[in-house]
């Protein structure tokens, strides 16, 4: 169980997150919805320890992550698929995955299991990451995070700019990971993509967590989404 407890955080003088609280249980997909600049990516970075918290706490299974140095956070079992993929562009597919494997000293059986989910990457294994197509790069970014056998997976706009078949492939992997008991936080802009996979949805506005609802309630009543996002 990953919990954010009244988190306040920001960049220098600019405070972005204000008393933001949320939690995600194993085997659950929590979606963060909100307008541009609402603080969704900042929430993810605060979990990863990439931003110092002003106050509040981030806890994984009761251990507070915000007191650890940033590089020790992923080792606790948090896989990060950042916005814009952020691969190590000049390194090969194999080296990108190796960095993921090193986080928790995972062996080749983990690598094999991950490549089973993304067979395309096996074909591209020794190619440089920057030579992959957009969809393949997204697969690699996801695979890199899965290589550390995460308890919690953070995906920041994983379907941005991808063709429908790739979106579907990523969506299926996310569903597989949920069924294996991984807790997933998914940041998305596209409401339809959210509703098809989410268990619960949190609306974020101006760094506040407005309300968290069951996805079923949203599927029944679209008016809620229109109220929060104004679409």
């Amino acid at each position: 169980m990953l919990e954010l407890d009244k988190v306040n955080a920001g960049y220098g003088q600019a405070q972005i997150l204000r008393d933001l609280s949320l939690h995600v249980a194993p085997g659950e997909i929590l979606c963060l919805l909100g307008r541009n600049g609402a603080g969704k990516t900042t929430t993810i970075k605060a979990i990863m320890g990439l931003l110092p918290l002003l106050s509040g706490a981030v806890r994984l299974d009761g251990v507070s992550l915000n007191e650890l140095p940033a590089h020790q956070v992923p080792g606790r079992g948090i896989g990060y698929v950042p916005q814009g993929r952020r691969l190590f562009a000049e390194l090969s597919v194999a080296q990108n995955l190796e960095i993921g494997l090193m986080v928790r000293g995972s062996g080749t059986e983990v690598l094999d299991a991950v490549l089973e989910l993304f067979p395309r990457l096996r074909e591209r294994f020794h190619q440089r990451a920057q030579t992959l197509s957009g969809g393949e790069q997204q697969m690699l970014a996801t695979a890199r995070a899965l290589c550390l056998e995460p308890k919690v997976l953070l995906l920041d706009e994983p379907t941005e700019g991808l063709q429908p078949s790739m979106i579907e492939a990523i969506r299926q992997v996310v569903a597989v990971m949920r069924d294996r008991g991984v807790g997933i936080i998914l940041v998305e802009q596209r409401v339809d993509a959210v509703l098809s996979v989410a268990d619960r949805v949190s609306f974020i506005e101006n760094g506040h967590n407005l309300e968290t609802l069951d996805a079923d309630a949203l599927r029944r009543d679209h008016a809620i989404i229109e109220r929060h996002l104004g679409v």
Binding site: A70, P82, L91, R104
Partner: peptide
């Protein structure tokens, strides 16, 4: 490998331990 990863993207290097 760690040095090159750090060179390419410091923040992602941190996010991968």
């Amino acid at each position: 490998l760690l040095m090159r990863a750090t060179q390419l993207d410091r923040e992602m290097a941190l996010a991968f331990g």
